[in-house]
């Protein structure tokens, strides 16, 4: 930026502001000639700006049409927006974390309930088959579910 532009020049500031006001009101479409080169150049820039962007681009009909198109887009986007995996399975009000907790709990229950009991005939000793292995399987399942949740969570 040149030095002239940075100078404090209230008179020029006021003249330019007044000119901009008049241009915006449609009262002027060219700068007066008896001006300094600097001010003349600035006024020409204002006119370029004003002429480049006509003041009223939208009439009532255009606004209504845009409104209709906006609503159509909103409807399209609502249809296109897929609910997350957790919402699909557990409904809108259940958080993904709660859904995950329920799932892990359900898996653990299934694992332990389905564990074959080993009861020797005629014996009072009851045991479960390879209990440590089932714990590991449950832990692995829980870990897999957690990874699935982490990867598929909505960002």
């Amino acid at each position: 930026m040149d030095q002239i532009n940075e100078q404090f020049n209230p008179q020029q500031d006021n003249q330019l502001a007044e000119f901009a006001d008049q241009v915006m009101q449609g009262k002027l479409n060219r700068p007066a000639s008896s001006l300094t080169d600097e001010l003349l150049g600035l006024k020409e820039t204002i006119l370029r700006l004003s002429n480049g962007f006509p003041p009223n681009p939208l009439d009532d009909a255009a606004i209504k049409q845009m409104h209709v198109r906006l609503k159509a887009r909103i409807r399209r986007e609502e249809k296109a927006a897929k609910p997350s995996f957790w919402k699909k399975w557990f409904g809108r009000d259940v958080s993904p974390q709660l859904g995950l907790a329920f799932t892990i709990l359900a898996v653990l229950i299934v694992v332990f309930v389905s564990t074959p009991s080993l009861t020797a005939p005629g014996s009072t000793t009851t045991g479960t088959a390879s209990t440590p292995v089932n714990f590991i399987a449950a832990a692995v399942l829980a870990a897999v579910l957690f990874v699935v949740f982490w990867v598929t969570r909505r960002k």
Binding site: M1, N5, N9, P10, D13, L16, A17, L42, E44
Partner: peptide, 19 residues
């Protein structure tokens, strides 16, 4: 108001330079 008008003039001057 004065500072605003001054800022406006400097903005127009900068725009002119870019144009």
């Amino acid at each position: 108001l004065e500072a605003t008008k001054s800022l406006f003039r400097r903005a127009i001057a900068a725009l002119r330079t870019h144009l």
